[in-house]
Structure formats: C-alpha cells, structure tokens
C-alpha cells in the first residue's frame, strides 16, 4: 500500500469514526435537552422507551465490536443523556450485564472456555462485595455517585486506550498452593489453531482480593465488570484470554444477580426501563457479533472510547452540579 493510500485510509477511518459518534448521538434527538424538565415532561413515555431500545441496540453493536461488555457502556452513557434517575439506570445496567452473561454462558461452558472451578471462588468473594457496593451506592447522594462514576469511567477509558484490546502472552509460571488445592486448571480446544490448549493459574490469593474490589465497584455503579475481570484473570493470574473473557461472564452472572437483589428491594428496578434496555443490548450484541469480521474494530473501539470520555465528563459535571 502506498503512503498516499495509507494516509487516505487513515483520514477515511477517522471520518468514519467521527460520523459514527455523530450518528449515534443523532439517534437521540432529545439528548441535548434531556436535562430540561419541560422537554422531558412533554415527551411521551413510549418515545423514551423507543429511544432507549434504539440506543441500547446501538450500544449492543458497539460493545461487541469494541470488545467490551454492554453493561459497562450502558450506565455511563445512558445516565448522561436520558431523564431517568441514576438509581433506575444502575438497576437496569446490572440486569443488562446479568442477561448478557446468562445468554452467553451455556455455550461458552460447553466449549470449556468458561470455567466453573475458576469462576466460583472469585464469584463468591465478588458477590459478597457487590452486595456491599450496591448498598453503599444506593445510600450515597446521587451527586457523589455521579462524581465517582465519572472518575471510574475515565479510568475505564484510559484502560481501554492502553490495552488496545490485546491480552498478555501467558507466562507459564507454576500454579500457586491455593489454585492447586482448588484444582483450578483446564484444557480448551482452540478453533483457530485446532489444538488443545492447557492452562493453569497463579497469584490466586491476590486475584481473590482484586475480585472483591471489582465486585464492590460493579455493585456500586451497576456496571458489568468485564473490563476489570478480564485483565485480572489474564494479566495477573495467567488465564488465557479466551478463558478469561468467558469466565468473566460467569462471574458477572453471579455477582450481578447478588447486587440486582439489592436494587430490586430498594425499588430501583423498573421493568419499564430495564426490559427495553436488556432487549436492545442483546439484539444489538447479536448483530455486532455478525458484523465483527466485516468492520474495522479499531475505529469502533476509538468511537467507544470517545463516547466514554464524553459520558465521563458529563457525569463529572453533573457530580459538581454544573
């Protein structure tokens, strides 16, 4: 490819990314006015539901193409641009993450990618802390949660920028005593290399501590925590990336269920908001999976990072009452 063609392609990719962001935001014409109570009151509920469904659908596509869970994008972005209170968005966000993990769980387990022995101990500590996180998050004033959410989103965007979507090369260190005692190791069949890949883990105690922390954050903000689970499994504990991604979903399904009950009992789960969000994200994820091989995922990832930064700034501003 000549330098001129390469530059042209880069310009084209950049323009496509910008147009993508614009299109996404234009899908919700009321976005700019969402903070205006008069505008919100004038809009019929079913229009908001259709917008939420359409927005969640686009988020579902983008989340798969960008290699992140829908749950992590849902809370920051919807809280920035829809008139619902943050409590209901966090409740819906947890259910979005939970539903995605439940629907993908069974096939991934059958393929040996999601591993129950690896996931269960992490889920046990994570679910306890996610309940604590949910209780803390719902007890805090909304502006403090917005502020903390803004900081968390900026952190996630930074993590995404640095990770570039690739996993580590696994260092084959010896298993630690705890993982040996728990019998955590496995074999999965890699469909790309057509080989059985065996794996084992190390630094299990440190992993448990971090999963406790991640569970708390996930419960507090109602976000899926795949963005944190996967690096801990992969980079810290030496789990192969595919197994890390799949097992992260298993952990999410348990942690999300535990925290969801706290939101349910606090009255923060409204089916009117939660169901279109779940439906939109799940349908979008299926389309996203089909588009995966046809779309330049790097530019999509860049769009998602830009969206997160905008949502994070908006959340910070809301937190400061601006």
């Amino acid at each position: 490819m000549s330098p001129a063609t390469s530059v042209f392609r880069k310009i084209l990719m950049g323009s496509a990314a910008a147009v993508g962001v614009l299109l996404l935001y234009l899908l919700i014409p009321a976005i700019s006015f969402a903070a205006e109570p008069q505008m919100v009151e004038q809009t019929a509920w079913w229009i908001w539901m259709l917008l939420l469904f359409a927005f969640s659908f686009v988020l579902g596509i983008f989340s798969v193409l960008a290699g992140v869970g829908g749950g992590v994008l849902f809370v920051p972005i919807v809280s920035g641009f829809f008139p619902f209170h943050l409590d209901f968005i966090r409740g819906a966000g947890l259910l979005v993450a939970l539903s995605g993990a439940l629907s993908a769980g069974a096939p991934l387990m059958r393929k040996g990618l999601a591993d129950l022995k690896l996931g269960l101990p992490m889920a046990l500590v994570g679910s306890i802390s996610s309940i604590a996180g949910a209780l803390a998050g719902l007890a805090m004033p909304a502006n403090i949660v917005q502020l903390l959410l803004g900081i968390a989103i900026m952190g996630i965007a930074t993590l995404m920028m640095k990770s570039r979507g690739s996993g580590s090369i696994i260092d084959h260190q010896e298993s630690d005593a705890l993982s040996k005692m728990l019998g955590i190791s496995g074999v999965y069949y890699d469909e790309v290399t057509k080989k059985d890949i065996s794996w084992q883990i190390h630094r299990t105690p440190m992993g448990l501590v971090l999963f406790m922390f991640i569970g708390f954050i996930g419960g507090m903000f109602g976000m899926g925590a795949g963005w944190a689970n996967v690096p801990v499994f992969n980079l810290l504990m030496g789990v192969p990336l595919k197994v890390a991604v799949a097992t992260s979903g298993l952990v999410l399904s348990i942690n999300g269920a535990a925290a969801a009950w706290v939101y349910i009992f606090k009255g923060a789960v409204i089916p009117l908001i939660a169901v279109p969000a779940i439906g939109g994200i799940m349908l979008g994820s299926k389309i996203g999976a089909k588009l995966l091989t046809k779309v330049n995922t790097r530019s999509v990832r860049m769009i998602v990072i830009i969206m997160l930064v905008i949502a994070g700034l908006r959340s910070l501003l809301k937190g400061f009452g601006i």
Binding site: L102, G105, A106, M109, G112, L116, K117, V187, Y189, D196
Partner: peptide, 22 residues
C-alpha cells in the same frame, strides 16, 4: 468430541440448567 474433552461433569450440569433457565 474434542470440544467436550476436559469439561467436567459438574460444568456440563451447570451449563445445561443455565441454558434451560435462561
């Protein structure tokens, strides 16, 4: 057959129930 190698019985039980329930 290869795909199902190494997957323990409990995991298969969990995935079956999860599929039906979800």
């Amino acid at each position: 057959n290869k795909k199902s190698q190494g997957i323990d019985n409990v995991q298969q039980v969990y995935s079956k129930v999860l599929e039906n329930v979800s």
